[in-house]
Design a protein around this nucleic acid. Sequence first.
DNA 1: TATTATGCCATATTGATATATGGATAAACT
DNA 2: AGTTTATCCATATATCAATATGGCATAATA
Lengths: 208, 208
Amino acid sequence: MDKLTIKQQRILNFIEKHRIEHTYPPTLKEIGEKFKITIGTVQDHIYALQKKGYLERKKDIARGFKVIKSDEEKSFEKMKSDVNLIPLYGNVAAGEPIFASDNIQGYVTMEKNPKGHQIHFALKVKGESMIDSGIYDGDIVIVRKQDTAEDGEIVIALLDDEATVKTLRNKRIKAYLEASNSKYKAIVNRPFQIIGKVIELRRQYSVV
Amino acid sequence: MDKLTIKQQRILNFIEKHRIEHTYPPTLKEIGEKFKITIGTVQDHIYALQKKGYLERKKDIARGFKVIKSDEEKSFEKMKSDVNLIPLYGNVAAGEPIFASDNIQGYVTMEKNPKGHQIHFALKVKGESMIDSGIYDGDIVIVRKQDTAEDGEIVIALLDDEATVKTLRNKRIKAYLEASNSKYKAIVNRPFQIIGKVIELRRQYSVV
DNA sequence: TATTATGCCATATTGATATATGGATAAACT
DNA sequence: AGTTTATCCATATATCAATATGGCATAATA
């Protein structure tokens, strides 16, 4: 693609900017007014932009401009549109509903999972019970909702109506939850329910 | 805002969809063609959409539609636009340039930092030297470029042309680098250069 | 030196688009 | 029963907007 002159670049920018701001591209006249040139001159510029491959336009269509983006810009935009916002829940006291919208503390960005629309959420970890697995107090875990898991996977489990992070031990005889901290005992013989599996961990360091 | 009828909702959706796909909104005629109704009827629908507050339009302006979005939609869009993609670099052998675009392994999404345009990048951690700080082999660290740091902060340092993750010890007498693993010794009396500070850690668990 | 690209003007014409008006039916609401 | 709302139609007109054409000057390029 040939390089654009300053004038051409400005006009191209104006078209795209106008489109974003007004939801529709400008007319030739509007471009002319902006740059204090006549329609005829605008035609020349538009022609140049088309010839150089930076602009497409539909014939006889009002405001029928389409600014061509480079592959790099495109893939960047695509990647951005592939970003999902998932809710970050705060810690929930026993008995309270976990997924109440009142408990949403914010949102966390996450690359969209290619495997369909699975439901994710994020949770702030409280306590030291998973420290031997490198999960610290204050870390954020991103969780995929599911009600089963394999032996050794880190899960969010509902224990006495409270959500906790633990390693699932799914042995032949019985499933139980294990803390990753030698000071804590495994939780055996208590009913629990798995609500999701930890798929990612995030830790934010305080920024000065 | 009054509720929309099915027909009105469809027309509203079409206008927005057309805008996204073509970069400009449709004309009255195009709407009429889509729904096989006459322009007069389209006028009625547009009028209703305006009266109910779902659509704005400029008088005498071709394709002058603007679909009004709810506050919720707006804030979601805004949050998405506040997402940045930062490059993820792979491990670099000693002597090779670190920030060469050849070394970009992918991109990581990150909430845009409100404090201006700082430069960030991401790096995959190799080795066990920071395990006592909960940073494991394979973890991804997000780094803010800077050439100084405070005592105790985790930094990326250039040691013999190789980038490593270490804790900075900035004592009265001399600065040195410390591993967070009792098996490793601190690196004293060797020249190094700080290239950034770790501001976030991410760990992906294998998803089955 | 001839040619092409850039940057500008003016004006006429064709076609695209929006607007205005009037009329009709059925359903919902007061 | 009367009124509003939601659907539709048809047609005329004004204006918006794109296109076509021709001309001029300068700088870069073959």
